[in-house]
Design a protein around this nucleic acid. Structure first.
Length: 400
DNA sequence: AAAGCGCACAACCGCACGATA
DNA sequence: TTATCGTGCGGTTGTGCGCTT
């Protein structure tokens, strides 16, 4: 037995909202609140709209203090960091950005940030409809690219393909950003240079956010993210790492692009977001060269990059090593000489079996995250939101 | 000038989950 | 314990606009 529809779809209006409808909804909610029942609300005010539609319209558009467009660099920074850390939990990410809605962030990520960071074009909807999108082809058409499996990739459920694509996208983003930043720190040997050495992405310095000044729902989420960051800092060795790195944490506070302390985008008091040092987004082409040149300059196992002991820790380096060893040769001779950041389709590609590469990468990524340990004193108890986030962080939700 | 195309944004859809009867 | 309901979330689709060919 299927679930009953939330409203009579035949009698409700769909499509764009008119100013009159907006005014009705806004006026009613501002005066009476939602009454705790969105389903009944449209009937009360004479709107031929689904309750869910009313809720969405209010939350995403009519609600006071909503910001639209013009994302700042620090907002982009936060979105990127959190996306890498927790994936497409847009509502959680939105909780870190006052005035932004999850829908806005989701759209911004899909239409702009993703392209900006991964240097890929948004797949044409027409192309998707015609099944010609290269990314879908790489993910969903694994059997075509990995013929040794005898079409096994094609047997992967569509949902699993999508989830893997998301996870791999995050890995790829992570690798690209690390590769880019690494170029600034790889050749340094002096303390000064080390101070200028790039941090690892996402920025993982301990957050000092004043959670008490935030709304309750934001606080729970913030604490959760903080837990994750604490843990990652511990993993990375940033907190007690090499002396040069510790100095860098202090000295680099004012450094553009690569300021470790610039990571403290949630450092400001009163719950506001202090502008971090310039993020230094890069053009895809320049990034590709930088990342490529960087890849072979580092020890890929154990010690992180630049010899400074900074990184995501052994699990991360192992993941990186795994991916590099598996995909590093995909670019041919040039890649062998200079390293190669795999593109998303390449990450999906598998030289030795259809779904194996995708699944392997996911497992590796999951293993890395699962191996993370929070300090006992940092465990949050009785907090469903933070608990959920911990689940995400600790591997339960990384399938997405 | 017109068709094709990509982009950005708003809105919809279906599922999962918690609350409640 | 189970069924139902309301809500929240993430993914997907619809649509209008502007640019390119």
């Amino acid at each position: 037995m299927g679930r009953a529809p939330c409203c009579d779809k035949a009698s409700v209006k769909k499509g764009p909202w008119s100013p009159e409808e907006d005014a009705k909804l806004k006026a009613y909610i501002e005066e009476n609140g939602t009454g705790g029942n969105w389903i009944a609300l449209p009937q009360k005010i004479g709107l031929k709209r689904c309750g869910k539609s009313c809720r969405l319209r209010w939350l995403n558009y009519l609600r006071p203090n909503i910001k639209h467009g013009d994302f700042t660099e620090e907002e982009e920074h936060i979105i990127c960091s959190l996306y890498i850390s927790i994936g497409s939990r847009w509502s959680i990410i939105a909780a870190q950005l006052p005035g932004r809605t999850d829908n806005d962030i989701k759209n911004y990520w899909n239409t702009k940030l993703k392209k900006k960071l991964l240097g890929k074009r948004a797949p044409s909807r027409r192309a998707r409809a015609a099944n010609q999108d290269p990314y879908l082809a790489a993910a969903g058409g694994a059997s075509n690219m990995c013929s040794t499996s005898g079409g096994g990739g094609g047997a992967m459920p569509a949902t699993q393909q999508a989830l893997s694509a998301s996870a791999l996208e995050r890995i790829q983003l992570h690798m690209r950003l690390q590769g880019l930043y690494g170029t600034f720190g790889c050749a340094t040997t002096t303390a000064d240079n080390a101070a200028a050495a790039a941090p690892h992405w996402p920025k993982l310095a301990e957050t000092l956010m004043q959670v008490s000044s935030l709304p309750t729902d934001a606080v729970t989420t913030t604490v959760s993210v903080e837990q994750h960051q604490h843990h990652l800092v511990g993993q990375s060795g940033l907190a007690g790492g090499a002396g040069a790195t510790a100095a860098a944490v202090v000295e680099a506070e004012q450094q553009p692009l690569g300021s470790v302390a610039g990571a403290n985008y949630m450092t400001a008091a009163q719950g506001s977001f202090e502008r971090p040092s310039k993020l230094g987004f890069y053009s895809p082409s320049a990034e590709a060269e930088a990342a490529s040149a960087d890849m072979t300059s580092y020890p890929m196992v154990g010690g992180g990059y630049g010899g400074a002991g900074v990184g995501f820790g052994p699990q991360h380096d192992e993941l990186y090593d795994f991916l590099y060893s598996k995909y590093g040769s995909l670019g041919g001779v040039a890649a062998a000489q200079g390293g190669h950041i795999p593109t998303l389709p390449e990450l999906h590609q598998c030289p030795d079996g259809a779904a194996a590469a995708v699944v392997g990468a996911d497992e590796k990524f999951s293993a890395w995250t699962t191996s993370c340990e929070y300090g006992a004193g940092q465990q949050l108890q009785g907090n469903s939101i933070s608990g959920s986030l911990q689940d995400y962080v600790l591997g339960g939700g990384y399938g997405q």
